[in-house]
Design a protein around this nucleic acid. Structure first.
Length: 487
RNA sequence: UCCGGAGUAGCUCAGUUGGCAGAGCGGGUGACUGUUAAUCACUUGGUCGUAGGUUCGAGUCCUACCUCCGGAGCCA
């Protein structure tokens, strides 16, 4: 068997002292300048390794094929660079073309060596991994996913795999994608003429999950503290830069936690994840920081961020989130300048939900930091949230919490759960949820019920905040959105 | 889904009052050879989003539709 050289990753060549050693690097050509300087990237870091090619020592036909996008293996001595742009470089002794990239074909893709808009890159999502920006984004995505598991593991939480296919349509978290093996042309019919789901694969109507929360509650009431981290599907016709039809959600659920514990957990968890990224993704974040700063220098001041990316991240890690009740938030808003000057488009009144413009004012103008809003009116929140005692004016609220982040909006939503069987049954009735179908859920309140709480964190929303990317479609490898399921 | 904007070369864009389809980048060929998104010369490149309509003549005006972007709603 032929011995092929073991490759050294670019990140390891750049970060350890290898001067004088002969190493093999394998990667994809970013640039080949002057028939002499071959810049290879292997995805291990945002930085390229410069391979110096003495073009007179190699076959001209080979040199011609060292084009942008080609896969190449290069072996040679690591030396200090004569040029100023890099510390070390490799003097090529052998060069092997692993995979050609024909320039006339490369020219029709985003692999061509020039700047592209994010929209164009999105149209070739299968190739955008090769760019600096998306290389950085997806290395950070890995780091954040790892941080999520590490955070919970270090604290004794159990990762729970909740079902992706569900028959529960009572979660109330939005439109669902139906899952069926029935013929769409001629589905079996009941005697009344409706579709006979008894004939369907599961013998009932099923959909893709919109939340693992209800199932997570069952596990939490036995294992104590669990978390889910899985795909979530919403069939809403949402055409925004903050919504996806398929996204990843983290949902911890903790027995014996009340709303305050839940807030503490949410804040601590977010800070941990952001800190993990700033500690472990230094080069990638520095690149994204520069990228954003350059892009913003073209914008009018009003459209720029108050702080550059790295400062925003440090700020979140180092400052307490502002905590206040919905009722207090309404007071703040009604006493605000934009309210008094009639600048808000939507009314602010106790009992109606806050609009984006109100949340943005609180986070970005008034408090200038992440905000946790709690105790929302019961009528505008989900049935499973714990009913608080009525306030002095007799108004009913639930122990809900939303964490609002600058630029991203609602990054996290959670609550203390209603643990009292009779109250929960009343709430089901008020929301027209058939109690019979929810029996499996209500059973937790029959057999040793206890205070418990949890939240849902949109992983891509966290990604947006950490990377500074402003469109959620640019922080997930293959975005699914209305009219969009390419690749 | 609603409001606003956009769609012209592989990419980023210009295109005047309705009158011959343009530039830069990229690609090709050559020169150069310690470059840093190298440089220089030459060259290549078009279903003007789609379908209709108005007009002697439409990238430009009108209608419908599609897609994308920004904002809103729904939410994470």
């Amino acid at each position: 068997m032929q011995q092929t050289a073991k490759r050294t990753r670019v990140v390891d060549i750049l970060n350890t002292d290898n001067i004088g050693q002969t190493l093999t690097v394998k990667g994809w050509v970013r640039f080949f300048r002057q028939n002499r300087f071959l810049l290879l990237n292997d995805g291990s870091t945002i930085h390229n390794i410069q391979v110096v090619v003495d073009y007179e020592s190699f076959d001209e036909a080979l040199i011609k094929k060292l084009t942008t996008g080609a896969a190449v293996s290069a072996t040679g001595q690591v030396v200090e660079s004569q040029g100023s742009g890099q510390a070390v470089e490799i003097l090529a002794e052998t060069l092997e073309l692993l995979g050609e990239a024909h320039p006339d074909q490369v020219q029709t893709t985003i692999l061509q060596p020039k700047a592209h808009t994010l929209e164009t890159l999105r149209e070739q999502a299968h190739l955008r991994f090769r760019t600096n920006t998306f290389g950085a984004v997806f290395r950070i995505r890995h780091a954040l996913a790892f941080a999520v598991h590490q955070y919970f593991n270090e604290r004794g939480y159990y990762n729970l795999h909740t079902p992706i296919i569900t028959a529960s349509d009572a979660e109330g978290a939005g439109e669902m994608f139906q899952v069926t093996t029935l013929s769409l042309d001629a589905p079996p019919r009941t005697e009344e003429g409706g579709i006979d789901y008894g004939e369907d694969f599961f013998g009932k109507e099923t959909s893709l999950t919109v939340s693992g929360q209800l199932e997570a509650e069952l596990a939490a009431m036995a294992l104590g503290q669990v978390y889910t981290f899985g795909p979530t599907f919403r069939a809403e016709n949402s055409n925004t830069s903050r919504h996806l039809a398929e996204f990843w959600m983290i949902e911890p659920e903790v027995a014996f936690n009340d709303l305050r514990d839940n807030m503490d957990l949410g804040e601590d968890f977010l800070k941990y994840c952001v800190k993990y990224a700033t500690d472990h993704c230094v080069d990638d974040l520095a690149f994204l920081h520069e990228r954003e700063t350059k892009a913003e220098s073209q914008l009018p001041k009003a459209q720029r961020n108050e702080m550059p990316l790295l400062e925003r991240l440090a700020f979140v890690v180092n400052n307490e989130f502002e905590r206040l009740t919905y009722t207090e938030a309404v007071d703040v808003l009604r006493n605000s300048k934009p309210y008094k000057k009639n600048k808000f488009e939507y009314p602010i009144e106790w009992g109606i939900d806050l609009q984006s413009e109100h949340e943005r004012y609180l986070v970005e103008k008034h408090f200038m930091k992440p905000v946790i809003l709690v105790d929302y009116p019961a009528a505008i929140k989900a049935f499973y949230m714990r009913l608080n005692d009525p306030d002095e004016q007799g108004r009913e609220t639930v122990a809900a919490m939303d964490i609002l982040f600058p630029g991203v909006g609602e990054i996290m939503g959670g609550s203390q759960r209603e643990e009292r069987l009779d109250v929960l049954q009343q709430r089901c009735a008020a929301f027209d949820i058939p109690a019979k179908e929810m029996d499996w859920y209500l059973d937790t309140r029959r057999f040793g019920t206890a205070v418990h709480a949890g939240f849902g964190l949109g992983f891509e929303r966290l990604m947006m905040f950490v990377t500074g990317m402003t469109n959620i479609r640019d922080v997930i490898p293959f975005p699914r959105a209305p009219k969009s399921a390419e690749f």
